[in-house]
Simulated assay, not measured.
Amino acid sequence: MSGALARLLGRAALHAGWIVVVLAAAILGGVCIGETAIPPATVLQTLANRLFGAGYPLDRIDAGIVWNYRLTRAIVAACCGAGLAVAGVILQALLRNALADPYLLGISAGASTGAVLVTVAGVGAGAISLSSGAFAGALAAFLLVALLARASGGGTGARGTGQIVLAGIAGSQLFNALTAFIITRSASAEQARGIMFWLLGNLSGARWDSVLSAVPVALAVTLVCLWHARALDAFTFGADSATALGVPVRRVQALLILCASLATAVMVSIVGSIGFVGLVVPHAARFIVGVRHVRLVPAAALMGAIFLIAADVISRIAVQGQVLPIGVVTALVGAPVFALILLRARPAR
């Protein structure tokens, strides 16, 4: 028994090591590639100087770009991609619906509304942080969607999940309209322009304080999901099956919904509303590693991190002298990829 446990732990450590190596390589690529290419040696020497006081002679401008701009941007992009992808895994498992994701179910729109209420309308008079407002908005949006689906007669099975998706579309439109109303009524022209650009996804404001917010949330949500991987496997067969297998359904559902809402809220408060990550990445991960959540959760987190780092790089180099909103890039890539996934998943006649 101890030998089997040792092999299991060794395999888990090996997989974790590979994930760290691949993620570090992706972050390094995100730092090196940009409007002006920076050699990997310069990036590594900058890190050595900052972390260990190595004393390599470097150009101060290059070192400042690496440490204060590109590194923080790449780390936040990785955390945002991982958090949104894991949130999508949670929602698709709990709702048993392939279309469930934070964007479609209105959670992202609710988080945007909460963030705009705090920053523009001044709700809380400075006592409420941006992330707290976004979390409250995300949770309110999901509760509204759940109540609307329940009131419309959604139960279990295909009808219930279909009602949830329809309620999510309605909730998303409602909160998007509320966000636009708040901006129109309370924001100046300059504020409105900045907020609208932020709502489309913007990593230009990512700094070390953003890293300190994003990293713990992404890690915590991923680890909680890994801890409940067997429960997520059970939920894919329905709540009744999960109950029969001994899963405390209500407690686990509440915890995982809170995790999905927290991940969405924190990431939206930092980078704005980004679509398709929580929808496309979990499906792509299932094609590669299968449906068991003990493999699916880390695979989706890693793929989401790499996907958003790549999208951020594209947003910076696609148009000379301009930075595209990252949400535009994820939509341009995510929509055709999701269409391809739907075509591949089409049942044979």
Rank of each mutant, 00 (worst) to 15 (best):
I257D: 13
N68D: 14
L212A: 15
L340D: 05
G10P: 09
A74R: 04
Y103C: 11
A13E: 15
P57R: 04
T243S: 15
G201I: 01
A244N: 05
V281D: 09
Q191Y: 03
G133M: 00
T179L: 05
L296P: 12
A48T: 11
L200C: 12
I90D: 11
G201S: 01
P40H: 01
A214N: 06
L166T: 12
T42M: 03
G275T: 11
L279D: 03
T264V: 10
I341H: 03
D240F: 00
A310T: 03
E35V: 05
I306P: 04
L203M: 09
L71N: 01
L232V: 08
F197C: 10
G122C: 00
G124E: 14
G81Q: 09
G171C: 04
A109G: 04
V116W: 08
F287Y: 15
S213V: 11
A180F: 03
I183L: 10
A180Y: 06
S188P: 10
R185S: 12
L219T: 05
S204K: 10
T36L: 09
A239Y: 02
C225W: 10
T236C: 14
F338S: 02
G122M: 07
A13G: 13
G246S: 05
W67N: 05
F175D: 03
M267Q: 07
E190M: 11
V247H: 01
V43Y: 00
A170R: 14
M196P: 02
S132F: 12
R11V: 05
L308K: 02
L105D: 12
A180W: 01
A125K: 11
V21Q: 07
L203W: 00
A138M: 03
L148P: 01
H293K: 08
N49F: 04
G83V: 00
G201T: 00
I27Y: 03
D59R: 03
Q92A: 12
N68E: 15
S132Q: 14
V249D: 03
